[in-house]
Amino acid sequence: MASQGTKRSYEQMETDGERQNATEIRASVGKMIGGIGRFYIQMCTELKLSDYEGRLIQNSLTIERMVLSAFDERRNKYLEEHPSAGKDPKKTGGPIYRRVNGKWMRELILYDKEEIRRIWRQANNGDDATAGLTHMMIWHSNLNDATYQRTRALVRTGMDPRMCSLMQGSTLPRRSGAAGAAVKGVGTMVMELVRMIKRGINDRNFWRGENGRKTRIAYERMCNILKGKFQTAAQKAMMDQVRESRNPGNAEFEDLTFLARSALILRGSVAHKSCLPACVYGPAVASGYDFEREGYSLVGIDPFRLLQNSQVYSLIRPNENPAHKSQLVWMACHSAAFEDLRVLSFIKGTKVLPRGKLSTRGVQIASNENMETMESSTLELRSRYWAIRTRSGGNTNQQRASAGQISIQPTFSVQRNLPFDRTTIMAAFNGNTEGRTSDMRTEIIRMMESARPEDVSFQGRGVFELSDEKAASPIVPSFDMSNEGSYFFGDNAEEYDN
């Protein structure tokens, strides 16, 4: 783990906690998980779902989305002020799938948001429990990260689609708070800032007046979040320049895209947490497990152990491969979309394939898809080993990566060399080191050039047997250095459309 220093740990961010010791953190995270579980059980009762239907990941996603929508204050306010045809701002819903006479049927349900809020609060001892809501947002974000390569979004903001390893959390809503900021990748933060800068260039009043003052505060806050992700002084200094700019424009845009590229080699610290679907927490609570009393951590053995003992089902389209669908969801559960496939294969105990080789589309089923041909199958979400999630980018030494994705962002704290394609990355730096950030740029390029592919990161860190909950005997895996390590390699994943 990167030293926490003055930073709060993510469990504290996750639970809005002030400084807590490890036991208190485990208890408050457990409380959050228990609340999600209780809410899910109650919703299944309301909807009269069978046990099997309640364990269907598509039903879980609909129920999670309903509660997130019920608590989305800004959108609710907007919907009330701008009524649109056929949208009731006070209601929320989605597809629920039921097994009827041996076939899967889709039923569109509609609930009062007020009623959903009441059920959620009741499951969370009367609190709004925003930490639990954020947790579900991060699960949705991790699922998107594993399912889609955001080529269009990258290109629109002047970045290269091969930089997708920097895009963790790119679909997280803005209201996801400190826990959300911690899991956002460098590219995601750059993209958010670039969008602001572009608006400022096109709209003279963007930075002016009372609204402009708020915009400015948001801009500086985002700059500080991004600065905190960088691990070298030169990158941090460049972020200070971007933040202090009187009138952010093209120079800042250039600096930010430069920094994003540099992060492929001088990786930023991005938190990883295993956020599971509500249909995993519900049955665990129903079986009598007391998360608050037992304590829970999002970055240790607990999620692995929970998945070892969970039964989750998914709808499967006619030509999809259930094992591939399982891999997709497994990666999402562990926030591992940008991790090295060699490491993932070792931990999972079966070969993890790149996205383009998977015969599976996303987990969600569109409303126009034919239910007649839908089957369902068990998702295999178990693992051979477990490993500690990392909050750091690993040290800054790398190795060759593949054509589709030119770097990785480690999820697990496991000893290995970190793949990246130096030639491709360095070719993108057209040696432009003039301007006010020239000395920093020169320094950053120097550090990137001296990074050695064969150097090892996370020295001495290994994986653990599932029986080793105290992480007492690390097993340090050895990897084939020459092997392909990137998930979005030469990829044809669908595009994420909101």
Rank of each mutant, 00 (worst) to 15 (best):
F39P: 00
E372L: 07
V299T: 14
G282F: 15
R199K: 06
D340F: 02
G460M: 07
Q398I: 15
S9D: 00
N124E: 00
D468V: 10
T147G: 00
K325H: 11
T62I: 08
L108C: 06
R317H: 01
I138S: 05
I408S: 14
E244D: 10
Q409R: 07
S141V: 11
E484M: 15
R74P: 01
Y97K: 00
A471W: 06
R213T: 03
K198F: 08
N21T: 09
R74K: 14
K229N: 14
L307H: 08
N247D: 08
A22C: 00
K351W: 09
Y281R: 13
N483F: 13
K113H: 05
K90T: 15
R26F: 15
G212C: 07
L56I: 15
T188V: 12
E114P: 14
G185S: 09
G30K: 08
Y487T: 02
G288T: 07
R174N: 03
S274T: 15
N250G: 12
K103T: 12
M481C: 07
N76G: 01
E294M: 13
R204D: 01
F458T: 00
N321P: 00
I197L: 13
P83M: 10
D439F: 01
P318M: 05
R422W: 13
K87F: 07
Q459C: 12
L466A: 14
D455Y: 15
G93R: 09
K227A: 12
Y10G: 02
R400E: 00
I265F: 01
T188D: 07
Y40R: 00
N309F: 08
I406C: 06
N21I: 12
N395Q: 14
G180A: 05
N492A: 06
G393V: 09
Y111L: 15
S28L: 13
V242M: 09
G288F: 04
L143I: 06
A123Y: 05
E244M: 06
M163P: 00
V190C: 06
L264A: 09
Q405S: 03
G228V: 14
D203R: 00
N125L: 14
G404Y: 03
T134G: 00
L276S: 14
E46K: 12
G404A: 11
C164P: 08
G212S: 07
N432E: 12
L172C: 04
G404Q: 13
T433F: 14
S84F: 07
D491F: 08
L49C: 10
P248C: 06
Y40I: 04
E443Y: 06
R422L: 09
T62Y: 02
N247W: 04
M238I: 09
N202H: 10
M481Y: 03
L256G: 06
A129T: 14
G17Y: 00
N76F: 01
N101M: 01
R267L: 14
C164Y: 06
I408W: 00
E46F: 03
I316R: 00
T424Q: 02
P89C: 09
G34Y: 05
S457C: 07
S438R: 00
A403Q: 11
K348F: 08
L315V: 15
Y496L: 11
L193K: 04
P453E: 07
F206E: 09
E192N: 07
M448F: 03
L226I: 11
S359F: 09
I109V: 14
M440W: 05
G200E: 13
Q459E: 11
G394K: 04
Q12L: 09
S28I: 01
V414K: 04
S60Y: 06
V299A: 11
K91I: 08
L259W: 09
P322G: 11
L381Q: 12
S438G: 05
P354D: 00
I225E: 04
M238H: 11
A70P: 09
C279Y: 07
A493D: 05
D128L: 11
Q168C: 09
Y219M: 13
V270H: 14
R446T: 11
T147K: 04
G209Q: 03
D112C: 12
G288N: 10
Q12H: 15
A451C: 03
E107G: 10
R74A: 15
G295W: 06
I41M: 11
S486C: 12
R446P: 03
S383W: 04
A182S: 13
Y281P: 02
K198D: 07
V352T: 15
G158P: 01
V343W: 08
Y496G: 03
E254G: 11
T15D: 00
S335C: 14
P354Y: 01
I265Y: 03
T373E: 04
T188I: 10
F489D: 05
S314L: 02
Q459W: 14
Y385S: 09
P283W: 09
T151H: 04
S170R: 07
G126I: 04
F412Q: 03
G462N: 03
Q122G: 04
Y496A: 04
S467Y: 04
A123E: 04
G54S: 15
C44V: 12
A218I: 14
F488L: 11
T23F: 14
